[in-house]
Design a protein around this nucleic acid. Structure first.
Length: 585
RNA sequence: CGGGGUGUGGCGCAGUCCGGUAGCGCACCUGCUUUGGGAGCAGGGGGCCGCAGGUUCGAAUCCUGCCACCCCGACCA
């Protein structure tokens, strides 16, 4: 590609709203342009890199038996109603009516369509197992898109769906994905860790998320450096401190004006937060048969700990959880800022499993300006649910060893999920087993966000001048710079390299050397070749890797071979990163 | 949805408080010079100042409403 003809341009300055490296650089280098909030166009450079990633995704999916399909983005709502997600999902799913008024949705994912295809196509155990995948646009009307391609509303996703007749089959396909995902990310040069993640309410059995560790990430993952344990914070296990015990003392009401937070309370009473009991008021949506009911949940945790909403939702079997409104709290007889289960009626009480072993805690009196001291579980309050409610955090004790846990930020670039029969059951996707008996097809679903992967790669590979692409996903392999006196030779090497199948971005513009070099650094193509009067005088063409290695001058006659050699070296480096990974759950 | 911020040429910004009909840098076009890390000189093109109302002789500037985009939050009780 001759740069003089290329659609797109580089910018000296990033748009003012680009706050992350990947966002700013992808815009500056001419890979993407924003159309609206969380909606981007890909320019030719961006499209080429995305195509490279998609090619890798296809190869790795086919390698584990995947067959590519393409499912529609616009779906009649019927299938979504059959699985009830039409009603369960909120504003994140966009809906509209077609001309005759039918409910339609923009697909956020494709479990429904896959299950529909399955019920139409699969009838016998002899047809299973199968793996289908597609690379398709998704629309999710995210409340808050941010950071360029890291979090967008319209995006391309590779999603694959395994179809099996047995749990063992699902397990096999799940593990195949577990490895394939590492292979995919490694081929793209992106370091990731797989962490166990929440399976949610939908009957899933196991899920892993593939995390790229970066401070700009929105997820928090918990890592133990001594035993290697890692998990999404939402489900991370940890060991709670040993309670001190002691004998229960008499419950007493104490005046504590202006202490609506644990911090203020501890300051006022000169005690440690671990001596307090914190009430967190949430409103849960519970499913009772066909009915949905809203109920106040009072979660009780030790004052120095943090509630993990996912654990609470799972414990009380809530479909949704949100912070309770003040009126809801008061209606149950509690008082915000001075809350506890004492005297509360009509609410579910959920108590962290550490609390029953704690003695003589300070907690709310449910009256403005008053707390109580010496509160004890069993005597002063009881619970509908007792279970782990605490979020692991920096400094928590590892559940598996003597280590201390570390919290770190990450971006989820992929996930794998054992769905089971959640969707095939709702849609009646069954097959006849070898006894002629109808069984529900067992599904798994597996996703990778293509644009997010690209953005994460830029986060990982850049410097203050621009991107430094891994060759596997670089828009071009060679950036050829022609400077005065080198034009003819540059034309020749451009033809020769192209003839060998090398992808060359040829800067044939009438620009100053500095402009060309800076653009080359910004765009980040891995191999740079320069032809100029000076290089020719020195015996040939200059070669340099974007990441820094200066390879000096290569004789003109050797240039093509040298480029091919460099290319294969760079490719091999990435290929060497692909190796078997032990399955970890 | 809550809070904050920003909308002025392709990009980055000034001008807004204190109303007088739009400016700077980069980019773009033409010419000459220059030619290895974002050149110099000269000339030039491009903006109904987010949109709609209102106030005023006169609005980028004041008032009202709306829209868009960005950031934070939507667990910290």
């Amino acid at each position: 590609m001759r740069m003089g003809q290329m659609f797109g341009r580089t910018l000296r300055e990033a748009p003012a709203d680009a706050e992350t490296a990947s966002h700013g650089l992808l815009v500056r280098a001419g890979f993407i342009q924003q159309l609206g909030a969380g909606v981007y166009s890909l320019l030719p450079l961006g499209k080429r890199s995305i195509d490279k990633i998609e090619a890798i995704l296809r190869e790795e999916m086919v390698k584990i038996g995947g067959q590519e399909v393409l499912m529609p983005v616009v779906n009649p709502a019927d299938v979504w109603k059959e699985t009830r997600r039409f009603y369960e999902i909120g504003d994140e799913m966009s809906r509209f009516h077609d001309r005759v008024g039918r409910d339609m949705v923009l697909a956020m994912t494709h479990e429904e369509v896959v299950a529909d295809l399955t019920r139409k196509v699969i009838h016998s155990y002899k047809q299973l197992p199968l793996l289908v995948f597609h690379i398709q646009t998704k629309w999710r009307d995210d409340a808050r898109p941010r950071a360029g391609l890291i979090r967008v509303r319209e995006f391309t996703m590779k999603d694959s769906y395994s179809l099996d007749s047995s749990e063992e089959g699902l397990d096999t396909q799940y593990r195949a994905h577990y490895q394939a995902y590492f292979d995919i990310f490694n081929r793209c040069g992106l370091p990731t860790v797989a962490v166990l993640s929440d399976v949610g309410m939908m009957g899933g059995k196991m899920a892993h998320e593939y995390m790229y560790l970066t401070p700009i990430g929105e997820d928090t993952i918990i890592i133990c450096d001594s035993c290697g344990y890692h998990a999404n914070r939402q489900i991370a296990q940890f060991r709670k401190p040993e309670p001190e015990g002691g004998d229960p003392a008499e419950l007493r009401k104490i005046e504590t004006p202006g202490t609506t937070t644990i911090e203020e309370l501890c300051e006022f009473l000169k005690i440690d937060a671990s001596r307090t009991l914190k009430a967190v008021f949430m409103t849960a949506t519970l499913v009772d048969g066909e009915e949905e009911v809203q109920k106040l949940v009072v979660a009780m945790i030790r004052g120095d700990m943090e509630l993990n909403e996912t654990k609470l939702a799972n414990l009380v079997k809530a479909k949704e959880l949100r912070p309770a409104h003040e009126e809801e709290i008061k209606a149950a007889g509690a008082y915000p800022g001075y809350g506890s289960p004492i005297g509360v009626e009509g609410a579910l009480i959920a108590v962290d499993d550490l609390v029953p072993d704690l003695r003589n805690l300070v907690t709310g009196a449910n009256e403005e300006g008053f707390h109580v001291e010496n509160a004890n579980y069993g005597r002063d309050f009881e619970a509908d649910f007792v279970g782990d409610l605490i979020a692991a955090g920096e400094g928590s004790l590892c559940a598996n060893c003597d280590g201390t846990l570390r919290a770190t930020r990450a971006v989820e670039v992929g996930n794998i999920f054992k769905l089971g029969t959640r969707y095939t059951g709702s849609l009646g996707a069954t097959f006849l087993d070898d006894n002629g008996k109808a069984q529900q097809v067992i599904m798994g679903s597996y996703g990778i966000g293509v644009g997010r992967l690209l953005a994460c790669a830029v986060e990982e590979y850049h410097d203050d001048k621009g991107v430094i692409w891994p060759i596997s996903i670089a828009p071009y392999e060679v950036h050829l710079v022609a400077l005065p006196g080198g034009e003819e030779e540059a034309d020749r090497i451009y033809e020769n390299l192209s003839a060998k199948g090398v992808e060359v971005l040829y800067d044939d513009r009438k620009e100053q050397a500095g402009v060309k070099f800076n653009d080359a650094d910004l765009i980040g193509v891995p191999i740079r070749v320069t032809a100029s009067k000076r290089s020719l005088k020195n015996g040939g063409l200059e070669m340099k890797l974007r990441r820094g290695d200066d390879l000096g001058v290569v004789p003109v006659d050797d240039a093509v071979d040298k480029v091919l050699e460099l290319k294969s070296t760079l490719e091999q480096e990435l290929a060497d990163r692909v190796k078997p990974v032990e399955f970890s759950d």
